[in-house]
Write a protein that binds this DNA or RNA. Structure first.
Lengths: 155, 155
DNA sequence: ACATTTGCTTGCAGCATACAAGTAGATATA
DNA sequence: TATATCTACTTGTATGCTGCAAGCAAATGT
């Protein structure tokens, strides 16, 4: 029953399969690496998104994270209690509120980033600089290409 | 302790940060892409590991996945009920059992692989072949280098 | 004004996970 | 051999993340 491989010519591309395998492994690495962090993956994701995008509504945050609004709402509650984000009423819409990274949240994010960075830097330690650059370039293109594909065809 | 950034010059490497950002995004992509699949991420992970490594004990599987034994035990129960894996007693140790991919599990894995492959292939569609190869090579090295690092220093 | 839509929160249920306790079998030591 | 300890696995329990549905407040449309 392994002849499915031979059914589709593109499916047999070993490079694509290698990419799948690597993504698979990266998933595991992230799980491991993140476990030791003082910031759970969801919170990290949200803080990072806020840092990148600026203040966002709960709904927008949910859209970016691909999570339900209720989930994000609870996360925000926790993050607020922890002092990592602040809520300010949206001047344009009193139902809405802008979630904003606090200084404490920024610090926490930075330390979490540093942890991940240390892990990756260790992995990339022996790489020649131009290969790191190339790798970053390819990764970036990869993500944006997949983004284009999925947003264009899926929804 | 948050100016670790300035302490280590390599931490400021924008390429490394770009890699972090990309990994971050890939995490999200996986979460999205996998949601539509007929196989949940955990099961996919286990089936793929079994396909790659051959029959494994529950403990070994747990080690590979970095999960608690109990969690894997429950997963195996489900997968067995679904007919995707079989259990055979370990001839060397009657407490242990070898979890083995069944034909049905292999089929299921292949179809799940095909889904992911379709997603990635779509993303890589416009890439020149040699860049895909290069990308796969870098990803592979990246994973194995991080593996080396973590296994060497962490445990 | 009233109905509908939108942004958010909360109640609820499902699932993954870890830790702890229990069982069966293996290993070590006296 | 007998007993203690260790190991592989399962099951009980608790916790956390998640989505869906219901509810509330505010905005928008008619």
């Amino acid at each position: 029953m392994q002849r499915m491989d031979t059914l589709r010519e593109d499916a047999a591309d070993p490079a694509v399969d290698a990419v799948i395998g690597a993504i698979h492994s990266i998933g595991r690495l992230i799980r491991q690496g993140v476990t030791g962090s003082d910031l759970d993956p969801g919170s990290f994701w949200m803080l990072k998104t806020l840092a990148k995008q600026g203040p966002l509504r709960v709904t927008e945050l949910a859209g970016h994270a691909n999570l339900d609004t209720s989930t994000v709402s609870r996360h925000v509650t926790q993050l607020e209690r922890a002092g990592f984000v602040g809520r300010t009423p949206d001047p344009d819409d009193r139902r809405a509120q802008l979630v904003e990274l606090s200084d404490g949240g920024r610090d926490r994010l930075h330390s979490a980033m540093a942890q991940r960075r240390a892990l990756l830097t260790a992995g990339l330690r022996d790489w020649p600089a131009e290969e790191v650059t190339e790798f970053a370039r390819l990764l970036d293109r990869f993500v944006s290409d997949i983004d284009k594909t999925t947003s264009g065809e899926n929804e």
